[in-house]
């Protein structure tokens, strides 16, 4: 399994969230918005505006900055 930051994933790639290493309150907020360890995140859109659109839990779309995406560690899910 390949461990990497969420930021490093390409569009349409998915990863299982392992860990959030951002500051306290933000980490909890992210976890509550669905970025809790164990959830699957898929990169929907990786524009050049400093933001990424992530699909979380197979339904909702959340826009996060690339700085945050960098602090979320995922294990890449390989598509069969």
């Amino acid at each position: 399994m390949e461990k990497m930051s969420l930021r490093a994933l390409n569009e349409k790639e998915s990863g299982r969230i392992l860990d959030i290493s951002s500051g306290r309150a933000l980490g909890k907020h992210l976890a509550e918005m669905g970025f809790d360890p164990g959830s699957i995140a898929t990169v929907i859109n990786k524009g050049s505006s400093g933001l990424m659109v992530i699909e979380i839990k197979g339904c909702c779309r959340v826009a996060i900055s690339t700085e945050i995406a960098e602090k979320i560690t995922v294990e890449k899910i390989l598509k069969e």
Partner: peptide
């Protein structure tokens, strides 16, 4: 503040 915002459908 880091940017976190839901994009509603």
């Amino acid at each position: 503040q880091p940017f976190v915002m839901e994009l509603p459908p």
